[in-house]
Amino acid sequence: MRVTLLLLLLLVVVVLGLWLSGWRPPDRFNPWAPLDVRAEPDLFLRYKLHRLDEDPARCRAALAQAGARFTPLPDHAGRDGCGWHDAVQLSGTGIAQLTHPTTVTCPLAASLVMLDRHVMQPAAEAVFGQPVRTMDHVGSYACRNVYGEQDAALSSHATAEAIDVTAFRLGDGRVVRIGSDWHRGSSGVFLHRVEDEGCRYFGIVLGPDYNIAHQTHFHLQESRGMGGWCR
């Protein structure tokens, strides 16, 4: 027991000495390293996404580094708890464009950039042999309760923390629609892969298999440090 404590103390002294000398572990092994959305996700992805929520400047820097097209927005306090904090007007995720710019929180934008780079594009190349050029969506921010029901909780859309994606437009102009292609051949394979592999970058992903309200779109919601909950 005494030997174990001495070895542990020696390890702490060695690590502290290295740290004070300026040594840092590689970013993928360092939970405090800034999130590089271009890099393959590591074990600390959730924690790094959570830290983006606490550091707007770092979040915007991560988007710019990845080539996302966005404009920072001032915070907005709406009625009944609606509004947004640390949001951007997002028009492109680095490779793909959005059909029209939309207001999303910066951490949600970062998750969309990673979805584009690490899931959508590899899946499209594997299944169709071409990239995704555009993501179709029906908006993000909407001051409403869940499902628009009066007695329900405030929707994540009411704080710009979620976006509803409806389709993907490929390089040759073909459109893969969630509502009509979910069970259709190669398009269905692509859509299921996007949902399954995209789960790690979001707090919640809901699709056609969840309920009738989501038969036509993916509901993609900011992580906030949560593990992926996908249905």
Score class of each variant (00 low, 15 high):
residue 164 D to W: 03
residue 131 P to T: 12
residue 129 G to Y: 10
residue 120 M to C: 15
residue 108 L to I: 08
residue 182 W to C: 03
residue 84 W to I: 01
residue 87 A to Y: 03
residue 128 F to T: 03
residue 85 H to N: 04
residue 163 I to K: 02
residue 108 L to V: 08
residue 141 Y to T: 01
residue 154 L to R: 11
residue 186 S to T: 13
residue 157 H to N: 04
residue 87 A to H: 03
residue 112 L to F: 11
residue 177 R to T: 14
residue 125 E to H: 14
residue 75 D to W: 07
residue 186 S to H: 15
residue 146 V to A: 11
residue 88 V to W: 03
residue 101 P to S: 12
residue 81 G to N: 14
residue 86 D to N: 14
residue 138 V to G: 10
residue 116 D to K: 11
residue 88 V to Q: 03
residue 100 H to M: 09
residue 93 T to K: 00
residue 183 H to A: 15
residue 128 F to A: 01
residue 100 H to Q: 12
residue 125 E to N: 12
residue 143 C to E: 03
residue 168 F to E: 01
residue 113 V to R: 05
residue 133 R to F: 07
residue 112 L to N: 10
residue 127 V to L: 08
residue 161 E to D: 05
residue 169 R to Y: 01
residue 132 V to T: 10
residue 115 L to S: 11
residue 120 M to F: 12
residue 129 G to H: 10
residue 144 R to V: 03
residue 140 S to W: 00
residue 129 G to K: 10
residue 74 P to H: 01
residue 82 C to L: 06
residue 145 N to E: 06
residue 90 L to T: 04
residue 167 A to S: 13
residue 108 L to W: 05
residue 84 W to L: 03
residue 97 Q to L: 08
residue 185 G to Q: 13
residue 126 A to R: 15
residue 167 A to E: 09
residue 164 D to V: 11
residue 172 D to A: 01
residue 159 T to S: 09
residue 156 S to F: 09
residue 134 T to W: 00
residue 79 R to I: 03
residue 164 D to F: 09
residue 181 D to V: 04
residue 123 A to T: 15
residue 107 P to E: 06
residue 147 Y to A: 11
residue 136 D to M: 13
residue 181 D to S: 06
residue 94 G to W: 06
residue 120 M to K: 12
residue 105 T to Y: 02
residue 126 A to H: 15
residue 111 S to T: 13
residue 82 C to I: 01
residue 155 S to T: 07
residue 90 L to F: 05
residue 144 R to T: 08
residue 136 D to N: 15
residue 153 A to S: 14
residue 141 Y to W: 09
residue 174 R to P: 00
residue 171 G to D: 09
residue 186 S to L: 14
residue 89 Q to G: 02
residue 137 H to T: 08
residue 149 E to G: 13
residue 100 H to N: 07
residue 133 R to N: 10
residue 89 Q to R: 13
residue 85 H to P: 00
residue 95 I to R: 15
residue 121 Q to D: 15
residue 155 S to K: 02
residue 124 A to I: 10
residue 124 A to K: 05
residue 83 G to F: 08
residue 148 G to C: 08
residue 149 E to H: 13
residue 97 Q to D: 09
residue 92 G to F: 06
residue 178 I to H: 10
residue 163 I to F: 07
residue 129 G to L: 10
residue 159 T to E: 08
residue 151 D to Y: 07
residue 161 E to S: 07
residue 81 G to W: 14
residue 175 V to T: 05
residue 134 T to R: 06
residue 83 G to Q: 09
residue 167 A to Y: 12
residue 106 C to N: 02
residue 105 T to V: 07
residue 143 C to N: 03
residue 128 F to I: 02
residue 146 V to Y: 12
residue 74 P to F: 02
residue 137 H to V: 04
residue 184 R to K: 13
residue 98 L to K: 03
residue 127 V to R: 11
